[in-house]
């Protein structure tokens, strides 16, 4: 055994360089699994893009970020007025609170889906000039809507305090339903944005679709007001029903969503989001040609 330290005989180690990224470019004919790792690598980009949207939207406006609560607040006032005249029951909660609480997840979904749907077309100049996973663009739109939601949610908490409504303990589950609303919006938004690049008609269809969708979602009315039969089935087929109900249950503690409806909603969301990501992977390299 030598007493000589082994390292002394070694040559200085070469500076280690990470291996260079290797990409093979060729016409892709097969369907491939969505490359979520690549999207995750660009996670800073959707954050930066979302911040850009927020900044740009409120620059040179007098109210600034307060605009994020104008939409739910005004809609709430309209709904409260309607319910006053139409005598719609609001689950034994003050209508102001009931509507504002129901509107938050709905508007999160509707705004996220609409802007995600328009996002690819709106970023044409980027998509034809630089590569990044294309799904980043719709995801950024959802993140933007989520930021608006967060601001509006703080107002909801203030409102509960003001009206002396004690939040239910299950309020800790709010993030679950927020995540579900985002996933639904992203799933449908990805499909809409992809279809918009092919058929410009879709862009005109989206606002109309959201409007109809609102009437099939228990926002203006509690789902307990809907009887059985086909109306109930229609309500349960809509994943947003269970999500809005669930959100309201978390905050106000009244009428929990039916478990089968919730399971069906989650299944629908998984299928829609999964298929849309799958489709996006397929068009990742071709969307720049057809946009």
């Amino acid at each position: 055994m030598s007493a000589e330290p082994a390292g002394r005989l070694d040559v200085a180690p070469l500076p280690t360089q990470p291996p260079l990224r290797r990409v093979l470019v060729r016409p892709e004919r097969r369907w491939r699994l969505p490359d979520l790792a690549a999207i995750w690598q660009y996670r800073e980009l959707f954050w930066v893009m979302a911040l850009r949207d927020i900044r740009v939207r409120y620059k040179q406006t007098a109210l600034g970020v307060a605009w994020a609560i104008v939409q739910p607040l005004c809609t709430m006032i309209v709904f409260t007025t309607i319910s006053h005249f139409a005598r719609i029951a609001t689950d034994g909660v003050r209508p102001e609170v009931f509507y504002y609480c129901g509107l938050l997840p709905w508007l999160l979904f509707a705004n996220a889906m609409t802007s995600a749907g328009n996002s690819l077309l709106g970023h044409q100049h980027l998509i034809t000039k630089v590569y990044f996973p294309r799904a980043i663009v719709p995801i950024a739109s959802v993140v933007t809507a989520l930021i608006d939601f967060t601001i509006a949610f703080v107002v909801l908490l203030a409102m509960l305090l003001f009206y002396g409504v004690r939040p239910a303990p299950q309020i800790v589950l709010v993030p679950v339903f927020v995540a579900l609303a985002c996933a639904t919006a992203l799933g449908f938004g990805l499909w809409l944005s992809a279809l918009t690049t092919q058929f410009r008609d879709v862009r005109h269809m989206a606002p109309f679709l959201t409007q109809l969708w609102l009437f099939c979602t228990p926002v203006l009315y509690p789902s307990s007001a809907v009887g059985g039969g086909w109306k109930r089935a229609l309500l349960d087929l809509n994943p947003m029903s269970a999500i809005v109900e669930g959100f309201r249950w978390c905050v106000l503690g009244r009428s929990p969503p039916a478990l089968p409806a919730l399971v069906l909603a989650v299944t629908t969301v998984v299928v829609v989001l999964g298929s849309s990501l799958y489709y996006f992977q397929r068009i990742d390299r071709t969307v720049a040609d057809r946009i």
């Binding site: 990409v23 093979l24 470019v25 060729r26 016409p27 892709e28 998509i127 034809t128 000039k129 630089v130 590569y131 390299r285 071709t286 720049a288 040609d289």
Partner: peptide, 10 residues
């Protein structure tokens, strides 16, 4: 990587 070739490999 913005667009895909119709044929060939890179």
């Amino acid at each position: 990587l913005i667009t895909e070739p119709t044929a060939g490999e890179m």
